[in-house]
């Protein structure tokens, strides 16, 4: 006890890192934690005190369906990102630093374009008069399929937006895989496919889990993209929360839904933390 105190007085500099955190902590408290607390409070007090809003969530088929749809969509998007991102990240990890940097630039380029612009770009590309439809018609698909306002179009756009997270997660892990291990496997007579499957793939698994977790969690809260590009039948929770507030002025119900969404995200995070440790999430 005494020694702890001594250390505290002897080295006042030890306090400083915490002081550096203070502005951010205050900012988060004022603009994130306090409003979040208000939302939590509203979910059990509007219109009356109790768990009525949560009971309603479980009893009304619409909510369950929308939640289910949200999770399935997020899962699908995470899988697509993994399938598309893995080869790319692999290529980057194998390339020279210059080529890798160029590829990384291309991947992250979409980060620098506004969300809405990207969404509208998909509308132009996939529209009835867009190049993709024209190409399918040229190939003899008559009448060409409707691509816009379907699950396909919204999934495509969300994968496009989220794939940088996946590629960066994978790349940071793949970059650290020791090439000596692969050479060792080869020298022991393993074929290239076996080297990949039995050595490389398991070693890159943390990146897959990281990327999939990140993409899944971010995707859960998507709002604009599914509303503008998706089919009306496939709503996601964030869109429904918006409707609850704008159309029904039902702040209580909307808060309850937001809380459930938050809880689901926290559960995913907790599972991840137990299994892998949170500090590894960003690679």
């Amino acid at each position: 006890m005494l020694s702890v105190l001594n250390r505290g007085t002897a080295a006042p500099g030890a306090l400083k890192p915490w002081l550096l955190l203070l502005p951010l902590v205050l900012f988060l408290c004022a603009f994130f934690l306090v409003p979040l607390g208000q939302v939590a409070l509203m979910s059990v007090t509007e219109p009356e005190f109790g768990l009525g809003n949560y009971a309603h969530l479980t009893s009304d088929g619409l909510y369950l369906q929308v939640f289910l749809n949200t999770f399935l969509t997020a899962l699908g998007v995470a899988l697509c990102c993994l399938l598309l991102g893995y080869p790319l990240a692999y290529l980057m990890a194998q390339s020279s630093p210059r080529v890798a940097a160029l590829l990384m630039l291309l991947v992250t380029m979409s980060f620098w374009t506004s969300f809405l612009v990207r969404t509208y770009a998909w509308m132009v590309l996939l529209g009835n008069n867009g190049p993709v439809t024209a190409f399918l018609a040229f190939l003899g698909w008559d009448p060409p399929p409707h691509l816009l306002f379907t699950r396909l179009s919204s999934t495509l756009a969300m994968v496009h937006i989220l794939i940088p997270y996946m590629v960066m997660s994978l790349y940071s892990v793949m970059k650290r895989i020791d090439p000596a291990l692969l050479r060792a496997a080869e020298s022991l007579g393993a074929r290239p496919w076996s080297v990949f499957r039995q050595v490389y793939l398991p070693l890159s698994a943390p990146g897959m889990v990281n990327g999939a977790t990140l993409v899944f969690m971010i995707c859960l809260g998507f709002y604009v993209t599914p509303v503008l590009l998706g089919s009306p039948q496939e709503q996601m929770v964030a869109g429904l929360i918006g409707t609850q507030i704008e159309e029904f002025l039902d702040f209580g119900q909307a808060s309850a839904m937001a809380m459930v969404l938050l809880a689901s995200t926290l559960i995913v995070l907790t599972v991840y933390h137990r299994r892998f440790g949170l500090d590894r999430l960003w690679g």
Binding site: M123, V124, G127, N128, N129, H146, L148, F149, V227, L228, P232
Partner: peptide, 20 residues
Amino acid sequence: DLRVWWTQGQQSQQLLRDGE
């Protein structure tokens, strides 16, 4: 046949203009 439900004036215009 109701392929899309518009929510904003701008969007309704775009749907008709682009022939969606």
